[in-house]
């Protein structure tokens, strides 16, 4: 808002001084040129994946045509093949089950803990908050080997339930962290009023905190969903049979096999597998970005 107002004010002021307005126009043109370069840089790989996925095998294999455009007509055969003749639908189903369960588990764990940490001071709450933040910094590539043994001893190797068990380590710390931020920004007067009305802590959490901090909950849920959709090293290490694989690993490991010109199928698989998080992002961009930035900037 401040920037829009400033831009309007600047516009009025610049209107009076022609040379400055010319400078401003050139600066804007340079900015847009720069943005176009950035946009091409960031978008050409997915564009090329899309183009490949719509080409016929013959055109993909031809070395004489321009690879960046479709010259010999669009085909959806790779997509149909993927849905009808491969294990792709099974991977999709597994991924949805894992992601939905992980989001639900994460939200319950983090909302409860964030409420306790932001409102009920108790012995060790400061240490616990530090611990949560440190846990968030522990990468999955440090833990996948000992967790391999843990998963194995629970008999969950080669089962997507292993992912439901271990993914919360990726999602819970960050979600708790941003929920603490959202809960802490709720005015204390609100819960004092609720307490006087005789509400207990669960009622207060359910009736006051969750509705008020709903944008934060949505942001946290989106984060948990995208992380569990995209996770790669855990399923790579723990799953191997076709009926248990999830999309990331299934696409990378099983679709690569096959005949020489498998690129169309591979690219359509990668695009379809990436579609849910991308669509979610397209519709809920502001929540997505709020979740990302609130972790650090409001710290």
């Amino acid at each position: 808002m401040a920037i829009a107002a400033e831009a309007r004010a600047a516009g009025r002021w610049l209107g009076r001084t022609a040379s400055l307005s010319r400078d401003r126009r050139w600066a804007l043109i340079a900015s847009y040129a720069c943005l176009v370069v950035f946009a091409i840089m960031f978008l050409f790989p997915p564009y090329y994946m899309l183009v490949t996925s719509l080409k016929t095998n013959a055109e993909i294999a031809a070395l004489t045509t321009n690879p960046w455009i479709i010259e010999q007509g669009i085909t959806f055969e790779h997509y149909w093949g993927l849905l009808a003749e491969s294990s792709f639908p099974i991977y999709f189903k597994n991924t949805v089950i894992v992601a939905v369960l992980v989001v639900a588990i994460t939200m319950v764990i983090s909302v409860l803990a964030a409420y306790a940490l932001s409102r009920l001071k108790f012995w060790g709450s400061g240490v616990l908050a530090t611990g949560i933040f440190l846990t968030y910094l522990v990468p999955d590539s440090l833990l996948f080997i000992p967790l391999f043994k843990v998963v194995g001893s629970l008999g969950l190797l080669n089962s997507y339930w292993a992912l439901v068990l271990v993914y919360p380590t990726l999602t819970v710390p960050f979600c708790t962290w941003i929920m603490i931020g959202y809960f802490a920004s709720i005015p204390k007067e609100l819960d004092e009023a609720a307490l006087i009305d005789g509400a207990n802590h669960m009622q207060m959490l359910w009736r006051v905190f969750i509705p008020v901090a709903l944008p934060g909950l949505v942001a946290a849920a989106i984060f948990a969903f995208t992380v569990s959709w995209a996770a790669f090293i855990y399923p790579m290490a723990y799953l191997y049979s076709d009926d248990q694989l999830v999309l990331t690993v299934g696409t990378v490991t099983t679709l690569i096999r096959g005949d020489v010109f498998h690129w169309g199928g591979l690219m359509s698989g990668a695009l379809l597998a990436a579609a849910p998080p991308v669509i979610l992002y397209a519709f809920l961009m502001d929540y997505y970005i709020a979740g990302l930035t609130s972790g650090a900037t409001k710290g």
Partner: peptide, 19 residues
């Protein structure tokens, strides 16, 4: 537009780069 690379799971967009 510029957030798109961050939204696509890295393992999948890397397939595109591989190609």
């Amino acid at each position: 537009m510029m957030m798109v690379p961050w939204v696509i799971p890295a393992a999948l967009s890397t397939l595109g780069w591989w190609w």
